[in-house]
């Protein structure tokens, strides 16, 4: 195993440019699962980002919040403004694994790992986050809902690293996050849902679901349904929009049917009385 241990982002980008097979490593909470059994992965090359101090910053600007790529769940839970401005970040952070994972796992690592069950990604997406990808040749910003191109696939090139995550500071008059796992802590998401409604916007709803498609996914059909005035009187009234947006499967953790049904119920009960057409 080769491991490169840069001290600056520039060094890290140089290394990435030279060696496209480098696997970036932040909190390592995904990589090291059952590590002794995964001997073939011991032969790969890794890029340890954990000491890039410049990436471990939470920056509040006048119109945005920027999380450096090494920001952990615990860091956000300790930030006094996060709870009032971006409450869903705290709600999701609190439900990631348990404190031992919250202290090491990073938001950017959660994005980069690309699991459809990623706990941190739905709320970031619901807050309209964008990701800065930095390489030797510069930086570009990608809206998070356009980041994934398929199951564990993304627009990130091998010479790029996620350097920051930025969310616009906006007024939301409604937001909700649900994580449905097999237990209250230390659970992998069976169905996740994050919904925000931006105050005084033309298209106010953002609905994001996870563990119901190949990627964490924004749900345009559900968003449109909420925006339209068509009445929703029961959970099943979400069914066709859900079918248009997501493709849940049966797997080791749950069933497609459960995922669809519960997503509808969570939408219905969360929005009942909030969205005027849901009663």
């Amino acid at each position: 195993m080769n491991v490169f241990m840069p001290n600056t982002l520039a060094e890290a980008c140089d290394l990435c440019a030279k060696q496209p097979d480098l696997i970036p490593l932040a909190g390592a909470t995904d990589l090291l699962v059952h590590w002794p059994l995964r001997q073939s992965e011991h032969d790969k090359s890794y890029l340890d980002l954990s000491k890039l101090r410049e990436l471990r910053k939470i920056t509040w600007a006048a119109d945005s919040l920027t999380l450096g790529a090494l920001t952990t769940y615990w860091d956000v839970l300790q930030d006094s403004r996060a709870k009032s401005e971006f409450p869903l970040l705290c709600e999701s952070a609190r439900q990631v694994g348990a404190i031992q994972i919250q202290s090491r796992g990073t938001w950017a690592g959660n994005i980069a790992n690309g699991s459809p069950a990623a706990d941190g990604v739905p709320v970031l997406m619901a807050y309209d986050a964008s990701v800065t990808l930095t390489s030797k040749s510069g930086a570009r910003s990608v809206p998070l809902h356009e980041y994934y191109t398929g199951y564990r696939k993304s627009v990130r090139r091998t010479d790029e690293l996620i350097s920051t995550i930025t969310m616009p500071l906006r007024k939301y008059d409604f937001s909700v996050f649900h994580k449905v796992g097999a237990r209250r802590a230390q659970a992998i998401t069976k169905i996740g849902l994050a919904v925000t409604r931006e105050a005084s916007a033309a298209a106010p709803w953002r609905v994001v679901a996870n563990s119901v498609a190949a990627t964490v996914k924004r749900c345009p059909a559900i968003e449109q349904l909420l925006q339209s005035a068509s009445p929703i009187r029961k959970p099943d009234d979400f069914s066709s929009a859900i079918a248009a947006d997501v493709t849940p499967i049966d797997d080791i953790r749950s069933t497609a049917d459960y995922r669809r049904t519960v997503l509808a119920r969570l939408l219905y009960h969360s929005l009942n009385g909030v969205c005027p057409s849901v009663t």
């Binding site: 699962v33 059952h34 097999a182 237990r183 209250r184 802590a185 992998i188 080791i252 953790r253």
Partner: peptide
């Protein structure tokens, strides 16, 4: 409630603590 043993060909498919769900203190 939660300790579901998932079989594949008579063997344990969910043979990890991530996928075989025992209660935590919070449950």
């Amino acid at each position: 409630l939660s300790e579901e043993f998932k079989f594949k060909d008579g063997g344990m498919l969910n043979n990890t603590l991530t996928n075989y769900i025992i209660p935590t203190s919070d449950d």
